[in-house]
Design a protein around this nucleic acid. Sequence first.
RNA 1: GGGGCUGUAGCUCAGUUGGUUAGAGCAGGGGACUCAUAAUCCCUUUGUCGCGGGUUCGAGUCCUGCCAGCCCUACCA
Length: 691
Amino acid sequence: MNQRKILVTAALPYANGPIHLGHLVEYIQTDIWVRFQKLRGHNCLFMWADDTHGTAIMIRARKEGRSEEEVIAEANAEHQRDFAGFQIQYDNYGSTHSDENKKLCGEVWQSIRDSGLVKEKDVDQLFDTEQGTFLADRFVRGTCPECNAEDQPGDNCSKCGTTYSPAELINPVSTLSGSTPEIRTAKHLFIELEQLHEFLEEWTQSGDHLQPEVANYLRGHFLGDPQSTEGAKPLRDWDISRPAPYFGFEIPDCPGNYWYVWFDAPIGYIASTQQWCERNGDTLDNWWKNDAAEIHHFIGKDITYFHTLFWPGMLKSAGYSLPTKVHIHGFLTVNGEKMSKSVGTAFKANTYLDHLPPAALRYYYASKLGSRLDDIDLNFDEFISKVNSDLVGKVVNLASRSAKFVKDTGLSANYPDDGGLFESAAKAGDEIAKAYENCDYNKAMRLILELADKANPFVENAEPWNLRKDPAKAQELQDVCTVALNLFRQLVIYLSPVLPDLAEKTGELLNDPLIHWDQSQTPLTGNPVSKFKHMMKRIEEKDVRAMEEASKIEAEQEAAQTENNSEQFADSEQPMIDEPMTDECTIEDFMKVDLRVARIVNAEHVEGARKLLKLTLSLGGDHRKQVFAGIKAAYEPDQLVGRLVVMVANLKPRQMKFGLSEGMVCASGPGGEEVFLLTPDEGAKPGQRVH
RNA sequence: GGGGCUGUAGCUCAGUUGGUUAGAGCAGGGGACUCAUAAUCCCUUUGUCGCGGGUUCGAGUCCUGCCAGCCCUACCA
């Protein structure tokens, strides 16, 4: 077999948060593919890194009062801890905030400049004057200019679906500071992607670089179809720079401006390779400028266009190899629902590991992952039954029901007649390998389990537990167990990209490490058999429940914390809907209303009145006012006497059924029992005017 | 608003270039066994293939309309 050179990447985890089970779909998918390629004897590297730049990390560092470097170093350590826990094995783990990356970004940038793809344009963007930063869309909320729905995101309205720019919002508010941002104009650099249209059309639509539905998506959405009546659509310019302040790399020939995070992030793949090369005496060109080397990216469908349009464009301009294939997967849902942090279904990697074994999730994902973009669902009932019945009940059971009968004798010296079981399973290896290669892991798992379903009946019919009772049948017993253990070993080799742990334990059991796919093609004979130890535990429902519970508690704690930070108040907009804002008034208008602090010196029920209380208010000295207030349902007179309120002191007196009312007390609320009197802060004195 | 994908047994999914009575695993029911982590083995029930049209000798498979779900929509869909 020709040894292939294969470089693999997974999307770079963002250094602003923990790894959760959704991320792990991709990372486990990638790890399985890499392990598979290595097992087949190929020269395969998994190059990975943290994605560290952008506004989000800058803001977070600022809020926590530490440097961005500290924030990303902590994330890096946490990420690598989680990956180790899930047995995800990479050859290098870098960071986009590295010297190597900075240098490479500069080189790529220069070639793009030299190709004449860069142009300057002025861009209007909202600027938070308190935080001193431009605001990305997701940091702005405001009233929809179309339907007047309040508290809508910066890019489109969740009520009416209109899309707009954040600058068009009525009453925009920065979610960072709560202040009103202003529009500022700044120079941005753009890459004219349209110049690469023909190349991208060619690259995306031919050569099996993309799954067919992705190629369709790109054509329908961005590129247009040159054959159709509408023809090709021009690609939009890509805004590649951000003005200071920004956490990232400053653009060398454009001081005060930084590369947008999506420029330097994918270059991080190359930078990570560079680090590996330096450590291993290899050269970058050997991997990134070599037609004999394949490059495979694994990503989620949300970042499709970055990897299928911008990234190939960048690589092309800079003279690097283009991706051999971009493998795109769907998202994870939990029990049929979108993962949700607040509900606690965004299970963190280390929360899972506190309660459950990594192999279980690896197998479960493998059994659900196909080569397409469908979302996969994590259903815990299915999870439990799949792991228990497939792995423990069928696969591991083969070893645990036969190993101890040959503990003293070891495997037979010659492989016995097994009715062709081993041979046909060996032949199935090609189809299983093909399924792995195509990322059809669910198919691979199905094929492997079919083999296990044939192996168990063999043991059943051979009845080793009866054979051992008759010393004359010792050879037969050894032969039966030799077959059972070889079929088991074969299955474990096929499963080893998914279950490296099981492969290792099987190697120990049979005193022959499993390191190559081809070991599945030849039976193992004559080897001693070690004492059988449990290889995999059944999943208990209570452990799953414990994890769910732990995750829910974490979610609640986090929610409580955000509330304490008064970071974001999720107040209802109902009051504003019930009583929309009135027309603008001038300061002169306002000054006509004489608001005064007043003390309630007497409060009493009014005979015959359903809603009213009669209040006597003191403005200090002898200034007294009598007011009838509609607060009977909300307050007892006793509660009121003595307290300070705010009143409209110069309101024209009004003759009411029960007497003259000489003002109003200020209160909010819709009425009835929901009336809330305004109280000045401590220190206010009756008679003081409210400005 | 535009676009992509999906819709097959209670659940998770297979169904190759359209070709006989539509399959598997799990779950459910019955039995066997006791070596094994209440594991295993045998037998067994279940389908208006989302709905409606069309092409065809023949459609789960191709075309079309509709419905439902999921996802995407670059600081201008």
